[in-house]
Design a protein around this nucleic acid. Structure first.
Lengths: 194, 194
DNA sequence: CTGGACATGTAATATGTTACATGATTGC
DNA sequence: GCAATCATGTAACATATTACATGTCCAG
């Protein structure tokens, strides 16, 4: 059910179409949440049906229209309620750690290759996260900028600081993963020779 | 589809019933993988149908029987193939970071309370992980012990070291989460006063 | 006038959760 | 004999993935 709240969170910044949201979910916001089109559009419809969102038909070009969604009072209330409700701890289900625990079933070269892939992935993530963090610090991040334009300085400060805080967590996590991967290379070298 | 491989991984140690597996998934192995009964039993049946597992009816008490599953050659081959195949990077979908990015929508006391809960959760996890790690180091961990009893010293060393490596990753992750939570308390104190 | 971005979905499948259901065995 | 544990599921629902389908608009 968190998809709902991720959608509301995004829409608190500015009204958006399903397409806008979809793009956000595969670009900068993707670090915090991701969902494919096929999940977004039906969920937006359900949320409108449930009164959490309102939509306005906006002209698009000559004949086309698009639906811009914005959060209703009920939606905002539901979001606040979720924000204040306790978090159910996530259950562990991460294939990476499962694999690592059984690396002895794989060829050491195959293991090295997988570690390299993971390393490349996390290095790229880390770079993106730090880049995005910088746009939060200077307040140029588009979604954030849209949101804080409607707030006073104190409120804006809070919004910005918490977003930076979230990114600091993601960055720390990425660094931890990279450290662990580095240890993995060292372990294989030790067990099989370089 | 990783559930399949998690099940095979467990069964490489020793033959088990669905119930045994279910218990493992909610005790020590839960750090690496978790699944409820209702997912385990049907999946075991499907895996037997697909030839990855074999089952033997074992007497249990006077009239009862239970099904002990063991991995077939085909199952082991499938496991090795999965172990050597590249990992598709996980997409981010973590409600904790989503919430953190929007903490300004919640009352600071509610935020503190959630941080306290997260802290308690991760501290408990960390303790369990370190405890389990110790049973890997001295080779008293039941699943591991069953597995290495069938291996020579070199193979046992590999199996043990990789499992410790996986737990080191989980422990590092838990510590990183705890650090981040600590920063969260500091941030709220700074923004609202202690 | 064409390709890429914009826009909105459906369908089928896979995976995961919650609740319910049932019975045997073992230890006290 | 009674409670806790062992044992094995089904059913309904919720969520997520993959593949497909269709059409508009805008820039070059």
């Amino acid at each position: 059910m968190s998809l709902r709240y991720a959608l509301i969170a995004l829409l608190t910044g500015r009204p958006m179409t399903g397409y806008d949201i979809s793009k956000s979910f595969s670009r900068s916001v993707a670090h915090v949440w991701h969902a494919p089109d096929s999940q977004i559009y039906p969920e937006l419809n359900r949320m409108e049906r449930d009164g959490l969102l309102d939509s306005v038909e906006v002209p698009w070009g000559k004949r086309g229209t698009k639906k811009e969604y914005h959060v209703t009072e009920a939606g905002l209330a539901a979001f606040r309620e979720w924000m204040e409700s306790p978090l159910v701890p996530q259950r562990q289900r991460d294939p990476v750690y499962l694999k690592a625990a059984y690396f002895d079933f794989a060829d050491p070269e195959a293991v090295r290759e997988q570690l390299r892939q993971q390393q490349a992935y996390w290095e790229e993530q880390l770079a993106l996260l730090e880049q995005t963090r910088a746009t939060l610090v200077d307040r140029s991040h588009p979604t954030l900028a849209a949101r804080i334009s409607k707030l006073n300085e104190r409120e804006a400060e809070l919004a910005v600081r918490y977003k930076i805080y979230a990114y600091d967590g993601l960055i720390a996590r990425a660094r931890t993963e990279l450290e662990w991967i580095k240890d993995g290379f060292a372990l294989i070298d030790e067990l099989y020779g370089p």
